[in-house]
Design a protein around this nucleic acid. Structure first.
Lengths: 127, 127
DNA sequence: TTTGTTAGTATACTTTATGTACCTACATAT
DNA sequence: ATATGTAGGTACATAAAGTATACTAACAAA
């Protein structure tokens, strides 16, 4: 697992714990950053371009205000999402993907490809 | 969001709930199948080839027996992982990716690419 | 003057996800 | 007779996620 890490000149002994290893295995690291229930859904909705808080809420009807806030805060902390506040009334806040977030495009599209293929398969299997 | 779904000849009205929409938006569908804490880690470990239960445990030291069992059962139900039992004593059970699971290769590699790039960036940023 | 708007925060509560500890069966090795 | 290894199962406990409701600021329109 994670021979990639040779590029960092590091070995990954069994004794190392997950927190440490997640800094070494790119896949484990990525999953730890994107693993929440809503993270990828929010990123998916920002791929097309910046959106306001309310637009995201309407685009993801099942997310609660609180969970959207928490998810956006975490994505912001991880440098995936950018938050721009316009000091007007009523408030105007725009969320967009950073360069790091934009780099998720391949992940999102391969995920979409898989979902599409798998979904099609299931329809045939069930119907 | 999810214009892809036009290929299924379906629209996605606001009134539709998440359960229904997850059958329509490939990304939401994919996330719903792969969203658990351990799902992608297990898939990642099976990409190279079949592994036994104990091998997976050793490869993912922080997963508990219970979570590995639950994760494998769900992946099996979703047609991503195949479980082969050899009726011997002591028990011998082998887990492998189905064709659907193999199709996750692009997802895994793009996720690895992103993690690698992002990880490298962070190292520079921090160090 | 009350209502509406946007993007939240605060609090309490419930549900689901994940984790811990201990248990089994059976054959072989000691 | 007891210990070892495999692939789990089960009861219970905790952590994470989600729900519901109330609350805020500041201005505009009815």
């Amino acid at each position: 697992m994670c021979d990639d890490m040779k590029v960092h000149g590091l070995k990954m002994p069994e004794s190392m714990d997950q927190a440490t290893r997640s800094q070494l295995c790119p896949v484990v690291y990525a999953v730890s950053k994107l693993g929440g229930k809503w993270k990828l859904i929010v990123v998916h909705n920002l791929i097309e371009g910046p959106k306001r808080f309310g637009e995201l809420r309407r685009a993801i009807p099942d997310i609660t205000q609180r969970m959207l806030t928490l998810t956006l805060r975490e994505l912001e902390e991880d440098g995936i999402v950018n938050r721009e506040v316009f000091e007007v009334v009523p408030p105007h806040v725009e969320y967009s993907l950073t360069a790091v977030g934009q780099d998720l495009e391949n992940v999102m599209s391969s995920l979409g490809d898989w979902g599409r293929a798998n979904f099609a398969q299931r329809r045939n299997a069930v119907a």
